[in-house]
Design a protein around this nucleic acid. Structure first.
Lengths: 231, 231
DNA sequence: GTAAAAAAATGATATATATCAAGAATATTA
DNA sequence: TAATATTCTTGATATATATCATTTTTTTAC
């Protein structure tokens, strides 16, 4: 079960991209007063697709996956969240529902900000609003990349993209241990887990990567990049 | 060649969703003074992916396609634009480049608004900014639907989605004449034109649709909806 | 209106990918 | 630590989809 805790070690989540740097002291204090932090266990749901969007969350520790569930019993993982990353969702100002689910991959904490408070900031602080639009557009650009990767490339290219994404953008290392299951890797790459496993094995046999269960090592990054480019 | 013309029959494009209804008289007059209208011939490029994003456009007549070009010589059509529809792009506030191309499907006119003027409106008018965020989020929601359609469904489901999209959202009729080529229909459905042609023929043989060249008639919408749902 | 070009359609075939079933490894619980 | 459940792996096979070559139809240009 998720536990509600009040902590003070997060000055509005230390947002890396810092959306909140445009708020003045008073505005920041207001957000800090109303926000609250929640602990999640591995596997627990942070946001549920279809559920009401009442808060924006900022992951303060751990990792989480953001994924869309379709009525065909398939999931597509949009992205992996890192600490200090904000997650809201396109239901904001629209239908106030979640259009994806978010669940914890590890023990995590997330800081929740009431959506009304967030809206208030947009209303009274133009710079904040502009920065928020920039933030949204950055997400859209990445979504375009994902769309093209998943629809224009075949499996080898898609698995390469997933491996490069994890090493470059999530774990910042060619060697990493992940809590993602093979099914998760498949859900990131739009294929079945069996296909994902087979291609990972191929890459291993060719000496491009190495792995045992959940520890991965990218040996020939340039080859992965090449496969990613040729699709 | 694109022709620059100044007209006065478009009070800032009569935006249907009316983003501009939140501007006051003075702000509206300012936009009207700086905007200009351009005529495009069929096939001409309105925005070019990778090119500089200097203006936001509003289609005032005709139809256009919005598509992403990948380095694999494949295109994905994101959407078809109808008159009064706004098109900017996620480069706004980010890198000021176009992340998709837009080209005219028919003789069209588009009204161009300088991106600086648009930014100024966001800066000075909070309601306008909020409405713009809402507009962006609506686009993202539709993009999620597209992503799921293209990655979770197989060809019959994707062609069904494309046909339903055209009849429901673009032409508002079960019978419609389109300027989209078979390649365009394929680019909307993430498959080769040969595959698109084959599935259209199947649907025709089964009496679900009828068509000759570019005039389509959806005979059994419920069947298309069912195929769309089962994937 | 005819010739040329472009787009659409078809068939044969190759390839990519999913499905199903089973066994092996790993993690979880008592 | 044994027992159980879960995840991972593999192989065999079926299906979905792309590719290539060719013909037919439609559009464009003269």
């Amino acid at each position: 079960m998720a536990i509600f805790i009040k902590t003070s070690n997060c000055s509005v989540c230390n947002l890396k991209m810092n959306l909140f740097r445009f708020l003045d002291k008073e505005q920041l204090a207001y957000i800090n007063k109303t926000r609250h932090e929640v602990k999640f266990h591995k596997g627990e749901t942070i946001f549920k697709q279809g559920g009401p969007l009442t808060h924006i969350a900022c992951l303060t520790s751990g990792n989480a996956k953001v994924y869309i569930e379709s009525h065909l019993n398939k999931n597509t993982i949009l992205k992996i969240l890192k600490p200090s990353e904000l997650v809201g969702g396109p239901g904001f100002y629209v239908d106030y529902r979640h259009h994806f689910s978010v669940s914890a991959l590890t023990e995590s904490t997330a800081c929740f900000i009431d959506v009304h408070v967030f809206e208030e900031m947009i209303k009274i602080n133009t710079s904040f609003a502009m920065e928020f639009i920039k933030y949204l557009n950055n997400i859209t650009i990445k979504l375009y990349d994902k769309l093209i990767s998943l629809t224009h490339k075949q499996m080898h290219g898609r698995i390469s993209d997933t491996l490069l994404y994890l090493s470059k953008e999530i774990y910042n290392s060619n060697t990493f241990q992940t809590m993602l299951s093979r099914q998760d890797l498949a859900d990131l790459s739009a294929m079945t887990k069996e296909s994902a496993i087979r291609i990972l094995k191929e890459f291993k046999d060719e000496g491009i990567i190495d792995f045992s269960t959940n520890i991965f090592n990218i040996l020939k990054e340039d080859v992965l990049v090449k496969i990613s480019k040729t699709g």
